[in-house]
Amino acid sequence: MTSQTSTEYEKYYVPPKSRLAIFTTIGLVLSVFGASHVLNDMTFGDPSVETNSWSIFLTGLFVFIATLFAWFKMTIKENMAGMNSAQLKKSYVLGMFWFIFSEVMFFAAFFGALFYVRNLSGPWLGGEGEAGRMNSLLWEGFQFSWPLITTPQDAVGGAGAQLMANNGTYLGAEKSMAFANAHAWWAWLPLWNTILLITSSFTVHIAHSGLLAGNKKKFNLWLAISVTLAVVFLYVQYLEYHEAYAEFGLMLSSGTYGSTFFMLTGFHGFHVFMGMTMLLVQLIRSLKSNHFTAEDHFGFEASSWYWHFVDVVWVMLFLFVYIL
């Protein structure tokens, strides 16, 4: 390593001045500013007053997405023009790796919340251990079990009868998403989703090996199959949510079970959507512009890492949200 001299050094490409950052900022800030107003109108606002919150939010989102499009387009162009040295490509690899790590930690927060409620605070609320003394004072009659169908508020007889003040109504669901509540084993949607997502991880891998072997046809075919599987997954997820709301009375507001279930699967679903979009973009790039070679295909590689990450998160979800 120390023997490398500066004559062998390939110049690291430092891009010239660019307006991408400022437009991304404008898009990002407008969309969160709009989103804050949309939410506050919903919760604290007067429904008879017309506001333009939605248009601020959507304008921001549009600027943000358009700028990201331009940004990725520019980096692809630079790469095609051969401006990216091997060293710069490694920076992109590191960037993607640590980005995925940050995503792992984001999910960790929600999994942590789930474990905490299921194993510690839930049982305490139900009267277990030293910390359970408050059960008979505040939530008399509440028994903890998971999935939590009867909330403490239900158990004491509704918001009016509860001793502890707060502003909300927290009514439990009728049924959980557990296997026991499915009509038949084949009607248990998460099982199908698991099969879909694991299969798609394999198909992405087959596409990658096709690309590495220089077989573009194989690559395009298997990548297209992967994207299709992702779309089907999202559709099944939609069916599942519909079932939860319409048949099981399970909502976002149905106590901690509803909160953790919808937040974990919802964020995962959003990440599936992102991963699907990423793979789709790679497919379009490959079909339209023949961008990838066996040696140089980081756009696809990064998307496939992201896809495998989303898949691993699902396996965790399947285990801890649906089965255990």
Binding site: L39, T43, F110, T151, N166, S259
Partner: peptide, 24 residues
Amino acid sequence: GAVTMMLMDVHFGTSFFSAAGGGD
């Protein structure tokens, strides 16, 4: 994650931080 849970508790009736719904 923490502020997202807050956001959901404030606007969407989740009960991450509310004992009445089984949270803490």
